[in-house]
Amino acid sequence: MVSRRYILRIGGGLLAGLLLPRLPLAAEAVEIRMQGNADGSHVWFDPVGLRVETGQTIRWINLDPGNSHTATAYHPKNFERPLRIPGGAEPWDSDYLLPNETFSITLAVEGVYDFYCVPHEHAGMVGRIIVGQPGRFPAADLSVQATGGEPIPEIALRAFPSVDEIMRQGVVRPA
């Protein structure tokens, strides 16, 4: 038999739980779509530039029915590419995603993260994510060739939205 005291204790515990301050729920994943023209003549990430909070998850989804794509961080561990993510951040490589496949990461270090599609970098399929608040990471001229590793094609360098544009808009869609 359940005592009255037991019921009051459980009820009091539930009431106390309702009065405790709530921790914010983890933000929903932000989606970056991998897309392309039907004839394969043009491929892109949408958005191409994005600002998120520390600890937010990014999910790439391949919506291009005619191509496989990757989401790959510029980092020496990835095909000896130049470092274009914050020091201390873990590099990622989604491997090839077939149509409708997804890949997710959670970014925990503030800064600027540049990424590309391995088979389509030469077509300018690149993107930039800014994690954190303005002014908390050192400004860098990311429009120029980084030192070390394989050079980035000029078309890819021109395709990155500026840090200022991403900070102003939050999301930058492809032109």
Rank of each mutant, 00 (worst) to 15 (best):
S3V: 09
R4K: 10
R4S: 11
R9F: 15
I10G: 03
G12N: 09
G13C: 11
G13L: 14
L14W: 12
L15C: 11
A16Y: 10
A16E: 02
A16I: 11
L18S: 03
L19Q: 08
R22I: 09
P24F: 02
A26N: 13
V30E: 07
M34C: 11
N37G: 03
A38N: 12
S41C: 03
H42P: 05
W44H: 01
W44A: 01
G49M: 06
R51S: 02
R51G: 00
E53N: 09
T57R: 05
T57W: 00
R59H: 06
R59C: 00
I61G: 08
P65E: 10
G66D: 14
N67C: 07
S68N: 15
S68G: 15
T70G: 01
A73C: 04
E80C: 10
E80M: 14
R81D: 10
L83M: 15
P86Q: 10
A89E: 03
E90K: 13
S94M: 06
D95R: 15
L97P: 03
L98D: 15
P99Y: 01
N100T: 14
F103N: 00
T106E: 08
E110K: 09
D114E: 15
F115Y: 03
F115A: 01
C117T: 04
V118S: 13
H122S: 13
G124L: 02
V126T: 10
G127F: 00
R128C: 01
V131S: 04
G132H: 05
R136K: 13
R136F: 09
A139L: 10
A139V: 05
L142M: 12
S143T: 14
Q145G: 09
G149V: 10
E150A: 11
A156E: 04
R158K: 15
A159T: 01
F160D: 00
P161F: 05
P161D: 02
V163W: 05
D164R: 13
E165F: 11
R168W: 06
V171R: 09
